[in-house]
Design a protein around this nucleic acid. Structure first.
Lengths: 226, 226
DNA sequence: CGGAGACTTGATCTGAGTCAAGGGGAGTGG
DNA sequence: CCACTCCCCTTGACTCAGATCAAGTCTCCG
């Protein structure tokens, strides 16, 4: 019986390592994980994988912000959702055994950790708990979709924009004298996509929000007074 | 080594038995499945489980049609989706280990097969392929949600109603001299919920559909001429 | 008979989409 | 350095679909 107690866990450096789907990997499976594990730095607007590409593995966002886009046949693309550190991307494609049907793009300088497909398969065989964690992520994705559908039907666009900015501020915001500030990591078009509205409408929604709330927005500089 | 080759599989009677998530169960796990397996007949509008109830197992729709509703705090309920034969319900709650946050109700006389929670756990331990099939259902649910979001954003209500009726006709429709007929298993309010619009609007959408398409609708009698 | 609920219809309001125009910044080329 | 273009974003005017409010019909059921 070999002793694996001195083998480092690759997720040890990430803040959320105990939430990582790879956290249960230990013992003989750990070297498999380490061997395949790859940390990829991404520049702003760099593409991680394209729509239609074969799935080559499972990615975990280590830092930064990744945008998941759907590209239409006419060349237009639409931002579907954001993936924050700790989130897994590409697992739908992995689990379904199909090509990616979305594109992943870094919205700010980011880092993702990749585990190639065949390593994932080997690990799943040895550490069934990992499959349990993957299933949890599926459930989260389902819940997120449901919440999105409900929010779209019941909340006004101003409320939803406010919610979205609040979530972004929690992650990207820095405290300062007059409240909380951030540099918006999204274009107006991307913001509009996320809310499922037209850019012109977003422009008006933003204007409305400036009047009715504690937000000040100038270009991509966002300030929440308070 | 006991011989299990003469043990019947409980899903053998269903048309879709090879698609059943329990199909991979065999050998020593089969008696566990059989022991817990319970066929429940449901009358129209009978409740299978309520929102907030503890999860007591996983259900598979054997025949009929089950409506999944979300009940608001003010007592109003909203039909979220339909579950057809072969679909699994209650698995989100099972996998998350949380109470149901939707309600399941038979829309027509139906039958569901229940496998209690502890049996599912035992089976998952012995037949990991079942977990794979469960994961597939998760993926399907995610895809369905995405399709729903996209359809809501890009298609008109008339188109979406037409799509919905088409799907219902495929399952509940019977061929007759002048086309395809069915008795609509849903109230107008439920139809409106599924499309995410108000009942008054649905009424007008139906009126529009009667003019522009091959549908004739009178009360709950639907005819697709052709 | 009366009441409740499902459904329809009409009138009106509102919010988002669409079309069109223009400002402003970044990058390019002369 | 300036002119030019491209793209992002904003603004205004208009249109239209759906929400809302109100009224009325119908059926079912006590």
């Amino acid at each position: 019986m070999r002793d694996y107690s001195d083998v480092q866990h690759p997720c040890g450096n990430c803040d959320f390592h105990d939430q990582s789907i790879w956290q249960p990997v230990s013992g003989a499976a750990l070297p498999i994980l380490n061997r395949g594990f790859d940390r990829l730095p991404l520049e702003t607007s760099q593409i991680l994988f394209e729509q239609g590409e074969e799935n080559s593995g499972v990615y975990c966002v280590s830092r930064g912000l990744i945008g998941i886009r759907s590209c239409q046949d006419d060349g237009k693309s639409t931002l579907l959702r954001l993936a924050y550190p700790g989130e897994i991307i590409g697992f739908r494609s992995f689990m379904a055994g199909q090509p990616h049907h979305t594109e992943a793009q870094a919205l700010i300088p980011s880092r993702v950790c990749k585990v190639p497909r065949h390593s994932v398969r080997q690990i799943l065989n040895r550490s069934p708990e990992v499959l349990g964690r993957l299933a949890d992520r599926c459930i989260q994705e389902i819940d997120r979709s449901h919440a999105h559908i409900i929010a779209a039907a019941t909340r006004s666009n101003t409320e939803r924009l406010s919610d979205l900015l609040g979530r972004l501020l929690q992650i990207h915001g820095r405290d300062c004298a007059d409240g909380k500030r951030m540099y918006l990591p999204l274009s107006r078009i991307d913001l509009a996509d996320l809310l499922g509205i037209r850019p012109e409408t977003l422009s008006r929604v933003v204007a409305r929000l400036l009047n009715d709330s504690a937000y000040s927005i100038c270009g991509r500089e966002v300030l929440l007074r308070g």
